[in-house]
Each structure stands twice: as structure tokens, then as C-alpha cells.
């Protein structure tokens, strides 16, 4: 069977009902998509199929045949980072990084569709993605920044989160000094 991943065509041997995640990771050694749950629950395995975010753990290989599969590796390289990748660095939106591949893939689809910087809309788009580390605020900030068209400086980290998702007012990043 032929599988096109990141604009490269591969001849693959896996059985047609093998999960796309397993084919990518175990047969093709494309390890950007992560196996967080393999049951559709976490979003870490998300790839684009013809530009739409899809859980590769729930997608059978045969469903991807003849279509364009894009993983995080196909969205940018260390030398040529995409705007979303730059924003994730600048806003410290990746901590352990294990959810990040899926987050970046889904966020890229969102901004490519012309998604708005509105927090609620971004939450909706990333709703099925778990992140156990960041508390989500910085991820929302990063995606909103790209949606607004902000420049991201990857050689520094942004100041405290500004997202309206932070509902307890006042000090922003929880800095604890006396009032």
C-alpha cells in the first residue's frame, strides 16, 4: 500500500487495519506523533489528513491511503520553524513536550483555517487535547498570538500569560509578593 506522509510517498507493508499511528511510528520511524493512550482520548497522536486534524491512533491505515498525511515533522524544521512552532517556543507552551506534537498539528490547522484569537474558539479547537504540564494557558496564548499575527522571538520567552483564561485577576503569573 502507498502512504504519502509529509509529501513523501512510502510503500508500507502493515495490514490495512493497522492504526496509522503504529504505521507511522513503528514501520516508518516517524516518531513525532505520540502514543499517549491509543484509544482516542488524549490527542498526542494527532496528524493532518488532507489538512484536517485526525487521531492517528483511531485511523486505520487504509483510511489514509491516497490522501496527504502531515505530521508535526512536516510543518516545520529546526531551521525553518512555522509561526505556530515559534509561538509555542516564545510563549513556553511546551513543557515536557509530549502533548506538543498533537497540539501544534491541531493549532496549525486552526490558524490555517483563519481561526480567531478568541480564547473560547481556540479552546473549542483544542478541546480534545490533554496537556498535563502547562495548565493550557500558555498554549492558548501561543495560538492566540499566531491568530493575531504577532511576531514571536524564539530567543526569549514571553512575559506572564495574558489569556483571558486566567480568571483570578490581579497578579497574572501568581507572583507572590506582599500586596
Amino acid at each position: 500500500m502507498d502512504l504519502v506522509v509529509n509529501a513523501v510517498s512510502h510503500e508500507v507493508d502493515s495490514a490495512p487495519l493497522t492504526s496509522l499511528l503504529e504505521v507511522l511510528r513503528e514501520e516508518l520511524d516517524i516518531t513525532g506523533p505520540k502514543a499517549g493512550c491509543e484509544t482516542g482520548g488524549c490527542g498526542a497522536c494527532t496528524v493532518l489528513i488532507d489538512g484536517e486534524p485526525r487521531r492517528s491512533c483511531l485511523t486505520a491505515l487504509c483510511m489514509a491511503e491516497g490522501r496527504e498525511v502531515t505530521t508535526v515533522e512536516g510543518l516545520g524544521t529546526p531551521e525553518a520553524l512555522s509561526a505556530v512552532q515559534q509561538a509555542f517556543i516564545h510563549h513556553y507552551a511546551a513543557q515536557c513536550g509530549f502533548c506538543t506534537s498533537g497540539m501544534i498539528v491541531a493549532s496549525s490547522a486552526y490558524v490555517d483555517r483563519g481561526g480567531s484569537p478568541d480564547t473560547g474558539a481556540i479552546q473549542e479547537a483544542l478541546g480534545g487535547h490533554y496537556c498535563r504540564c502547562t495548565g493550557y494557558v500558555k498554549i492558548l496564548d501561543a495560538v492566540a498570538a499566531v491568530a493575531r499575527g504577532d511576531d514571536a522571538d524564539t530567543m526569549s520567552t514571553a512575559a506572564s500569560p495574558t489569556s483571558s483564561y486566567v480568571s483570578i485577576g490581579g497578579t497574572g503569573n501568581g507572583g507572590g509578593g506582599a500586596a
Binding site: T31, G32, P33, T71, V72, E73, G76, T77, P78, L81, V84, Q85, Q86, F88, I89, Y92, A94, G97, T100, S101, I104, T154
Partner: peptide, 9 residues
């Protein structure tokens, strides 16, 4: 490790 995380490397 930011660049590695965001590029899947």
C-alpha cells in the same frame, strides 16, 4: 529543548 519539542525531534 524548545526547538526539539515543537518540531517533533
Amino acid at each position: 529543548d524548545g526547538v526539539g519539542h515543537v518540531t517533533g525531534r
